[in-house]
Structures are given as structure tokens and as C-alpha cells.
């Protein structure tokens, strides 16, 4: 890292500050490497964590919205109309504990949990279809 090994100090660096500059250069190198790694691996990592390739990007988007607004009927509209109103504007389903600071009540999304959420919802819907008479279903449960 020290390009000036054969000529003493780098241009612009005086003796008094050579130690400071050496440490700053190390810090800069660490930060640059870290930003490069983050820039490279963040998106692939997020994709895998949130269910790709089992879920397509648009399905991922829909699952995140269902989770965020606690509403199983929400779908991610894509492409979204240009100059349309904000997608979530006026929603009334999101769950929060309101106070001096709001705290959302949605649960933490663990590794590939979005896939699990979707499978469970599909199973629920399938089960609901198999018992077409709601009165009967309630009777059975009781």
C-alpha cells in the first residue's frame, strides 16, 4: 500500500504528518473495500433472504406489501401508473401501536419466511374452499 517505499514520503505528506497519513490511508482502504463488497453483495443477499428464485420479484413485492399492511388481499401493481397516487395512500389495515412513537406490530421476517407466509396463506385459502358452507364449518369447530 505504500507506494513511496523507494522515494521516502508521498508528495504532499510532510514528516510531521506521515504517521497520521499512513493511518488515514489504511482507514480509507478498509472503507473502500467494504463499500465495494456491500455494493456487490447486498442485492443478491436480499434477493435470496426474501425468497428469490421461488418468488419472482413481483411476488416478493406483493408479499412484502401484504406483510407491511397486514392485508392478504394487497397485490403489487406493476407497472405502476405514472403520476398515480401513492400506492399505500389511505390504507386502513396496517397494525401499529400508536404513541409518542408508533411501533409496528408486524412480525420479523426470517430467512425465506416470505415463501412460508405465501404457502401458509395458499393452504388457508385451499382449506376455506374445501368447506364451502361456513355455517357447517363453524358447527364442526364448535
Amino acid at each position: 500500500m505504500n507506494q513511496s517505499s523507494n522515494q521516502g514520503l508521498a508528495p504532499g505528506t510532510r514528516e510531521t504528518y506521515s504517521r497520521l497519513h499512513r493511518w488515514l490511508q489504511r482507514g480509507l482502504f478498509v472503507c473502500l473495500t467494504a463499500l465495494v463488497l456491500e455494493g456487490t453483495f447486498t442485492f443478491p443477499f436480499l434477493l435470496v433472504w426474501y425468497g428469490w428464485p421461488t418468488l419472482s420479484l413481483q411476488e416478493m413485492c406483493s408479499e412484502l406489501q401484504k406483510h407491511r399492511f397486514s392485508d392478504d388481499t394487497r397485490e403489487c401493481i406493476y407497472p405502476y401508473p405514472l403520476f398515480g397516487p401513492a400506492e399505500g395512500a389511505g390504507q386502513t389495515t396496517a397494525q401499529d401501536e400508536w404513541g409518542v412513537q408508533p411501533r409496528p406490530k408486524y412480525e420479523r421476517i426470517g430467512f425465506r419466511d416470505l415463501v412460508r407466509f405465501r404457502d401458509e396463506r395458499l393452504a388457508r385459502e385451499a382449506a376455506a374452499k374445501q368447506t364451502p358452507d361456513p355455517g357447517l364449518a363453524i358447527g364442526v369447530r364448535e
Partner: peptide
């Protein structure tokens, strides 16, 4: 904010590190 990449990857990033990018996202005018 309404592009697909933003609504998936940026909100996913928010869900992972900073809910400022997840909580009530795309709800302000």
C-alpha cells in the same frame, strides 16, 4: 419509489436494517 426494484429491494433492505424504508412505505403523498 414505485419502480419494482425499489419496492422489492429497497423495502427489503429497509425490512432488514432500517424500517424507515419499510414502515408505511409509499403512503405519504
Amino acid at each position: 419509489h414505485h419502480s419494482l426494484i425499489n419496492r422489492t429491494l429497497v423495502t427489503a433492505w429497509g425490512n432488514m436494517f432500517d424500517a424507515g424504508y419499510y414502515w408505511h412505505y409509499n403512503e405519504l403523498w
